[in-house]
Design a protein around this nucleic acid. Structure first.
Lengths: 208, 208
DNA sequence: GAGCGTATCAAACACTTGTTTGAAAGTAAA
DNA sequence: TTTACTTTCAAACAAGTGTTTGATACGCTC
């Protein structure tokens, strides 16, 4: 590489570009050429460094920030209700904040709608732990009187609300062009989801 | 067309096949050749009858069943709380029941994650009316003390829970291979979402 | 400098995509 | 039958896909 400023390892630049493009276009929509263009690398670089487009995706995936979020939450000295609110807030920032470096969640969300060879790894390393974490947190709130199936559905209710704002973004923007996911809006959304869900959880089983 | 049993108009067979394939693979993932193969038609048929793949999608979209569902619900002689439960139940059947002929919702859900030229029509003719309908229903339940932004978020909370089961299906199936969306399971899910949401709505604003 | 393994490159490859073409077949009124 | 029009078809087209190739440059040890 003779271009000045391109001293960074090609491999790393490819990974960064790949995360960008995969999160924007999905696995199928992303092209090796576009990734290489953004990385300032030759088309052959992907094959050379990662074997294939599949291999690039596999290496581009890592879920550190998601794991850290859960760890920090589990260690927080607060009642489970408050911790649920904190989790939702952090999770929504991760999902919606464009300044947030974590494009991982966006790739993840993409994969849901359009499973690719990468989905298995994502499920194993990110989604399964996330579901488990949330199920434990919900269990602390609702107690033991709720069955496992119903507990799972409670976790799904929370995750469903959170991911809605992410994956419906193209639609919501068409319906309300003035909508912006700035920090204030994200906080308001997170607070709504937390309140809505806590009431849903707390009074669950009281009517049946 | 000389093949026996292929007497049905090519145009109609193309539309049927298109709805199938679009709902399975999304707009980008669907190929004209696969659609024509299932319709027993020549590749050129799409261009001839619909001008292009885009045109085929536009004609393949119609949201009769979704509109009827809303109309029937609005006419039902029941309190808004019960009508919300009925709506969620019908909507979940439409989303999850594989026997249900309405592949429209599946196409719709696909489009969210991967917007195509068809999304504008979908938003205008299906999603916007759906959001309005649900907002009116929620308004009946929560009364006038809740602002418009918060009201919208309530509708999103409900829609988010519903669509979660649909668009996370590939993940949930990997996590719980025994999961089947049979009629009993769909009813249980719908009941959970209705209970969870009603409590979320009813007690909204009581803690703040 | 010679030799060697790594990295990069332009170019090509094999394949799939949506679309077009021009001929053939069918249909129905004149 | 002739005529005009619609529909279907195999084949081809142009563009885009992931991947491979063989040459070239680089950085290093000897």
């Amino acid at each position: 590489m003779s271009i000045v400023g391109a001293s960074e390892q090609t491999r790393e630049r490819l990974l960064t570009a790949a995360r960008e493009v995969f999160s924007e276009c999905g696995f199928q929509g992303a092209t090796v050429r576009e990734i290489c263009r953004r990385a300032g690398a030759n088309v052959a670089a992907v094959s050379y460094h990662f074997g294939s487009k599949d291999g690039l995706l596999a290496e581009a995936l890592h879920f550190e920030s998601l794991r850290l979020l859960q760890e920090a939450n589990a260690c927080a000295a607060a009642c489970p209700e408050v911790r649920l609110g904190l989790f939702i807030r952090d999770f929504m920032h991760m999902l919606l904040d464009e300044n947030n470096a974590s494009s991982q969640c966006r790739i993840m969300a993409r994969e849901l709608a359009d499973p690719s060879p990468g989905l298995d790894k994502i499920v194993r390393e990110a989604i399964a732990p996330l579901h488990d974490f949330l199920a434990r947190l919900v269990r602390e709130i609702v107690g033991d009187k709720v069955g496992d199936a119903e507990l799972r559905r409670c976790a799904y209710s929370i995750l469903g609300q959170c991911s809605f704002y992410h994956h419906s973004h193209p639609v919501l923007q068409r319906l309300h062009p003035e909508l912006r996911y700035d920090s204030k809006e994200i906080e308001a959304i997170a607070k709504h989801i937390a309140d809505f869900s806590l009431h849903g959880l707390k009074y669950l089983g009281k009517t049946a």
